[in-house]
Design a protein around this nucleic acid. Structure first.
Lengths: 126, 126
DNA sequence: ATTTGTAGTTACCTACTAGTAACCAGAATA
DNA sequence: TATTCTGGTTACTAGTAGGTAACTACAAAT
């Protein structure tokens, strides 16, 4: 996202939306959870994301202090991603969103085709 | 947004992000809060939004059951928007996001120019 | 007769986002 | 010697989001 009108707003809520208000970041934060994961794992588990977009989002999340990037000086390279304290503090909010959705969403029957999109059963997200 | 890959996902969390995971919807929901507002008021208070995008977002929010649209048969037209039960239930989550941001955000000094973007002091958002 | 007010819609255009495929380093393995 | 492994980056392209300006309806006010 990186919309300066949001990120530089004088309203703290607007700024918050500027940093986490897109579709990928909440998903990435949720997938990471309390685990440490490598780039390739994230790429395999986050559904439909391309490596390009994943690396962009991870970079922004790191800049905004939501996660920590640990690069080992090895070959082939190894990089671990884990949530920072700030990122971990965001997890309960995501839990609330899940509960809110389960409570109020009108039930829909997932189509067959949905499963093609999942790299893991149930998207590995919930 | 309306990304079918998100909205039709078999993961409830992914679906939730599909409906509210963009930059405008949390802002609109927050601005509405417990009040009833007319289209023109929303347009005046939500910073930087165009009428076109506002009406698109309002339509999607209505479709997703987050708000109710009350059109009076008058001329000139009058339309009231208010949050539904589902929308109201989302407000505490937005409160949590505000608190989370205030607690963890690295302090930044708002620039002079920020105030030009605000149609109300402090954006009227917080 | 003209202007004002409201809640949009429409057409057009631009700017950003996201996807794809190819490519990189350099050690370990076959 | 060629391939594999990993975590990206780059160039190119397609698609989408969003902005602007003009336009609508019709009553009431000027």
């Amino acid at each position: 996202m990186k919309d300066d009108r949001f990120c530089n707003s004088n309203c703290p809520f607007t700024r918050a939306i500027g940093t986490i208000g897109n579709k990928w970041k909440p998903i990435i934060i949720n997938v990471l959870g309390t685990r440490t994961m490598r780039f390739g794992q994230l790429d395999a588990i986050v559904p439909h994301i391309s490596r390009k977009v994943l690396s962009e989002q991870l970079k922004e999340l790191e800049e905004d202090g939501l996660l920590e990037r640990l690069a080992y000086k090895e070959l082939p390279p190894r990089v671990d991603y884990k949530l920072s304290e700030k990122g971990l503090a965001f997890l309960p909010i995501l839990e609330n969103i899940k509960e809110w959705n389960l409570k109020y969403e009108v039930a829909t029957i997932p189509k067959e085709t949905d499963y093609k999109w999942s790299k893991l059963p149930q998207d590995g997200l919930s």
